[in-house]
Protein backbone atom coordinates (compact mmCIF):
# COMPACT_ATOMS: atom_id res chain seq x y z
CA UNK A 1 0.00 0.00 0.00
CA UNK A 2 1.22 3.46 -0.97
CA UNK A 3 1.81 5.79 2.00
CA UNK A 4 2.49 9.54 1.93
CA UNK A 5 6.16 10.56 2.25
CA UNK A 6 5.65 14.23 2.97
CA UNK A 7 2.31 15.85 3.88
CA UNK A 8 1.48 19.56 4.28
CA UNK A 9 -1.25 20.46 6.75
CA UNK A 10 -2.53 23.96 5.93
CA UNK A 11 -4.71 25.01 8.86
CA UNK A 12 -4.94 28.18 10.95
CA UNK A 13 -6.25 26.62 14.15
CA UNK A 14 -3.20 25.25 16.03
CA UNK A 15 -5.14 22.52 17.83
CA UNK A 16 -6.77 21.22 14.65
CA UNK A 17 -3.39 21.41 12.99
CA UNK A 18 -1.73 19.29 15.73
CA UNK A 19 -4.55 16.76 15.70
CA UNK A 20 -4.47 16.41 11.93
CA UNK A 21 -0.69 16.00 12.01
CA UNK A 22 -0.98 13.22 14.63
CA UNK A 23 -3.71 11.36 12.78
CA UNK A 24 -1.89 11.55 9.45
CA UNK A 25 1.20 10.02 10.98
CA UNK A 26 -0.62 7.43 13.01
CA UNK A 27 -3.44 6.29 10.74
CA UNK A 28 -2.13 7.16 7.29
CA UNK A 29 1.42 6.15 8.13
CA UNK A 30 2.63 9.48 6.84
CA UNK A 31 6.45 9.69 7.12
CA UNK A 32 6.78 13.44 7.57
CA UNK A 33 4.15 16.13 8.24
CA UNK A 34 4.72 19.90 8.00
CA UNK A 35 2.10 22.36 9.28
CA UNK A 36 1.39 25.87 7.99
CA UNK A 37 -0.94 28.44 9.60
CA UNK A 38 -2.28 29.83 6.32
CA UNK A 39 -2.20 29.36 2.56
CA UNK A 40 0.46 32.00 2.05
CA UNK A 41 3.00 30.24 4.30
CA UNK A 42 2.34 26.87 2.70
CA UNK A 43 2.61 28.34 -0.78
CA UNK A 44 5.86 30.16 0.06
CA UNK A 45 7.43 26.92 1.31
CA UNK A 46 6.14 24.98 -1.66
CA UNK A 47 7.57 27.40 -4.21
CA UNK A 48 10.86 27.53 -2.28
CA UNK A 49 11.06 23.72 -2.30
CA UNK A 50 10.35 23.68 -6.02
CA UNK A 51 13.03 26.30 -6.58
CA UNK A 52 15.66 24.66 -4.38
CA UNK A 53 14.89 21.16 -5.55
CA UNK A 54 14.14 19.93 -2.00
CA UNK A 55 11.37 17.45 -1.14
CA UNK A 56 7.92 18.20 -2.53
CA UNK A 57 4.81 17.01 -0.68
CA UNK A 58 2.76 14.15 -2.12
CA UNK A 59 -0.24 15.05 0.09
CA UNK A 60 -1.74 18.41 1.07
CA UNK A 61 -4.56 18.63 3.62
CA UNK A 62 -6.09 22.06 3.16
CA UNK A 63 -8.49 24.11 5.29
CA UNK A 64 -10.71 26.66 3.52
CA UNK A 65 -11.20 29.55 5.95
CA UNK A 66 -7.83 31.05 6.78
CA UNK A 67 -6.41 34.55 7.06
CA UNK A 68 -4.11 36.14 4.46
CA UNK A 69 -4.53 33.44 1.85
CA UNK A 70 -7.47 31.10 2.17
CA UNK A 71 -7.87 27.61 0.76
CA UNK A 72 -9.31 28.78 -2.55
CA UNK A 73 -6.57 31.29 -3.14
CA UNK A 74 -4.02 28.65 -2.30
CA UNK A 75 -5.58 26.32 -4.88
CA UNK A 76 -5.51 29.07 -7.53
CA UNK A 77 -1.85 29.80 -6.85
CA UNK A 78 -1.01 26.09 -6.57
CA UNK A 79 -2.49 25.27 -9.98
CA UNK A 80 -0.12 27.80 -11.58
CA UNK A 81 2.99 26.14 -10.12
CA UNK A 82 3.17 23.16 -12.54
CA UNK A 83 4.81 20.71 -10.12
CA UNK A 84 6.82 17.88 -11.69
CA UNK A 85 5.22 15.24 -9.43
CA UNK A 86 1.58 14.60 -8.65
CA UNK A 87 0.24 15.96 -5.36
CA UNK A 88 -2.91 14.67 -3.73
CA UNK A 89 -4.91 17.60 -2.33
CA UNK A 90 -7.68 16.98 0.23
CA UNK A 91 -9.91 19.71 1.59
CA UNK A 92 -10.55 19.28 5.31
CA UNK A 93 -12.99 21.86 6.60
CA UNK A 94 -15.78 22.33 9.08
CA UNK A 95 -17.88 24.01 6.40
CA UNK A 96 -20.88 22.06 5.16
CA UNK A 97 -22.02 24.98 3.01
CA UNK A 98 -23.25 23.52 -0.31
CA UNK A 99 -21.51 26.37 -2.19
CA UNK A 100 -18.15 25.24 -0.83
CA UNK A 101 -18.74 21.62 -1.76
CA UNK A 102 -19.84 22.66 -5.28
CA UNK A 103 -16.87 24.97 -5.69
CA UNK A 104 -14.41 22.29 -4.59
CA UNK A 105 -15.77 19.95 -7.26
CA UNK A 106 -14.63 22.45 -9.90
CA UNK A 107 -10.97 22.22 -8.93
CA UNK A 108 -9.28 19.33 -10.68
CA UNK A 109 -6.44 19.57 -8.12
CA UNK A 110 -8.85 18.58 -5.32
CA UNK A 111 -9.07 14.82 -4.84
CA UNK A 112 -11.45 14.76 -1.89
CA UNK A 113 -13.66 16.99 0.28
CA UNK A 114 -13.76 16.07 3.99
CA UNK A 115 -15.86 17.51 6.77
CA UNK A 116 -14.18 17.62 10.18
CA UNK A 117 -13.58 15.65 12.34
CA UNK A 118 -10.97 13.43 10.78
CA UNK A 119 -12.51 10.24 12.18
CA UNK A 120 -11.95 6.58 11.23
CA UNK A 121 -14.40 6.79 8.38
CA UNK A 122 -12.69 9.87 6.88
CA UNK A 123 -9.22 8.36 7.39
CA UNK A 124 -10.29 5.24 5.51
CA UNK A 125 -11.64 7.30 2.63
CA UNK A 126 -8.44 9.39 2.55
CA UNK A 127 -6.38 6.21 2.40
CA UNK A 128 -8.45 4.82 -0.45
CA UNK A 129 -8.39 8.05 -2.46
CA UNK A 130 -4.65 8.45 -1.91
CA UNK A 131 -4.04 5.06 -3.55
CA UNK A 132 -5.64 6.13 -6.83
CA UNK A 133 -4.13 9.60 -6.76
CA UNK A 134 -1.65 10.35 -9.54
CA UNK A 135 -2.62 7.35 -11.64
Amino acid sequence: MKTPKLAYVVEDDPITSSITKLILRKSLACEKVQTYANGQRAFDHLSAALHNGTDLPDLIVLDLNMPLMDGWEFLDAFSCLHLPTSVCVFILTSSIHPDDIMKAAHYKEVHGYFSKPLDDHNVERMQRLFQTCGE
Binding site: D13, I15, T16, N65, T93, S94, I96, H97, K116, P117
Partner: peptide, 11 residues
Protein backbone atom coordinates in the same frame (compact mmCIF):
# COMPACT_ATOMS: atom_id res chain seq x y z
CA UNK B 1 -22.77 28.95 13.20
CA UNK B 2 -22.54 25.39 12.04
CA UNK B 3 -19.01 26.00 10.75
CA UNK B 4 -17.73 27.62 13.89
CA UNK B 5 -19.27 25.22 16.36
CA UNK B 6 -18.33 22.29 14.19
CA UNK B 7 -14.66 23.19 13.99
CA UNK B 8 -14.39 23.03 17.79
CA UNK B 9 -16.61 20.03 18.28
CA UNK B 10 -14.54 18.19 15.65
CA UNK B 11 -11.43 18.92 17.68
Amino acid sequence: ISHNIRSHSAN
